[in-house]
Each structure stands twice: as C-alpha cells, then as structure tokens.
C-alpha cells in the first residue's frame, strides 16, 4: 500500500528492509475521500500526517473573495502534510481533487521514529525540504515565467514526479485535474489556459486532453519551460 512512498525514498536514499518494515508497521490506517473533501484542514490541530496513496490532491489557500490559489499538486507517494508534525496546525489546507486514499502516520509514531531511527527521521525531513524546493520553483514560475512557459513547466515537473512512482508510460501520464484547477495553480483563467494548451499542442510539444498529458517532445518542452529538474532532488544522495 505504501510502496509508492518507498519508490520516492529509494530514488534518493539507500533504504533498508528494516526501515521499510518500521514504516509498514506504523502505517496501517487508511481514509478515503471524494473530490472536494478536505484531507488536512487549515487551522485545526492535526495528530497524524497523511500519505497519499491514490488520487490527486492539492495544497491551497483561499483569498477573502473566495479565489483559490493552488500551491502544489500532490500525487500518490507524496506525504501531503508531513510538516503538520512540527507545525501541529496548518496555515493551508489539502483538498482532494479526485477520489483519494491516504494512509495515516500518527504523529506520536513520528516522535518514536525520530528517537529510535535518526536516519529515517532525516529521510522524512528531506521529503518536506523537497516540498519547500518545489514551492520556491513555483514562485519563480508565477513571478517570472510567462504564458506557455509556465504551463509547460508544470507539465515537465509532473512528468518527473509521476515517473518516480511509476505512473508514466513513456512520456504520457494521467493528470486528472480540470483546466480551471490548472488555472488556479498557474494564475490564469480557464479560457487562457485552454488557449495556451492549444498553442502547446500546435507546436507539437504536449497535448492535454481528457485528463491525459501526452508529451510529444520532452527536450523541446523542457527548453521552452527553462525546466531544470535539479529542484526535485532526484537521484541518490551520498548518505
């Protein structure tokens, strides 16, 4: 059930069977959500962290007039709120965009891991640092990458992230979000998103249709987006 988490760890760290068993042992309880459900609420005390194992969710905040800014798309294998352990109360919420299933890691068990297995604690810390890195890259996108570059950048990022957890086929992947949700992430209206998707398709770079992303020319898409996957910290760490 939590094998996709192991894939994201194994991508970066040597990961022993004992460490896997430790997490398997502590991560038993699941919860299911339908689109629109809040997985991790803003402003309430949280006692467990949620590992997304199926579906797509998003990290977002709303403005006073109800506009939603999506700050990250979560995919299977992502701990959506590991940082709720030290923070206890989140300043944003995690919302299911599709049917979702999570596996809980109780915060008291994270305390136990930190005390008994510092290496695994560092691995979990690393995961939250990658989230922070993704947020920094999104800031650059929102502030300094215009139009189709910004859209292309997201499709590149999601390709690399889905690939780590085995959810790509060649350069195609399912990305079950709406154009409106893409707009809420990228700061465009849905009609503008639609127009830019048309441009990207006409340029032979990528097609997004029926929730399927088909990248036709990954090199050219990355070049347009000025995409450098370094911020995803893929590949084995030294320790």
């Amino acid at each position: 059930m939590i094998e996709k988490l192991f894939a994201t760890i194994q991508e970066r760290y040597a990961f022993s069977e004992e460490e896997r068993d430790l997490l398997r042992d502590k991560m038993q309880e699941t919860a299911d959500f339908v689109p629109g459900d809040i997985i991790a609420p803003e402003g309430e005390e949280i006692h467990y962290s949620s590992l997304l194992v199926a579906g797509i969710s998003c990290r977002s905040k709303c403005t006073a007039d109800g506009m939603r800014q999506i700050m990250q798309f979560n995919i299977p294998g992502d701990f959506v709120d590991l940082h709720s352990y030290p923070l206890e109360i989140l300043d944003h919420s995690i919302t299911a965009l599709t049917k979702c299933r999570i596996v809980k890691l109780p915060h008291r068990d994270i305390t136990a891991i930190i005390e008994s297995n510092p290496r695994l604690a560092r691995i979990l810390w690393f995961a939250t640092m990658v989230d922070a890195s993704i947020h920094r890259e999104w800031l650059v996108c929102l502030g300094s990458r215009a139009g189709t570059k910004r859209v292309a950048h997201l499709f590149c990022e999601m390709f690399y992230r889905f690939r780590v957890v085995g959810l790509t086929e060649d350069t195609t992947y399912n990305f079950p979000v709406s154009q409106a949700e893409l707009g809420q992430a990228l700061g465009f209206t849905s009609i503008h998103i639609n127009r830019m998707l048309r441009d990207l398709r006409d340029q032979g770079l990528v097609t997004f249709r029926n929730k399927l992303v088909e990248i036709h020319d990954l090199d050219a898409l990355e070049q347009l987006a000025e995409f450098d996957p370094g911020y995803l910290y893929l590949g084995r760490r030294s320790s």
Partner: peptide, 16 residues
C-alpha cells in the same frame, strides 16, 4: 462552455 475566437479558434470542451 467558453470558446475563444481570436487569431485562432480555441473551443472549450470541458466547460464550467
């Protein structure tokens, strides 16, 4: 459905 007719036609297949 919001279709854009500018330099090219962009049809909205998804709707709001």
């Amino acid at each position: 459905f919001f279709h854009l007719h500018n330099d090219i036609e962009t049809l909205d297949e998804e709707g709001r």
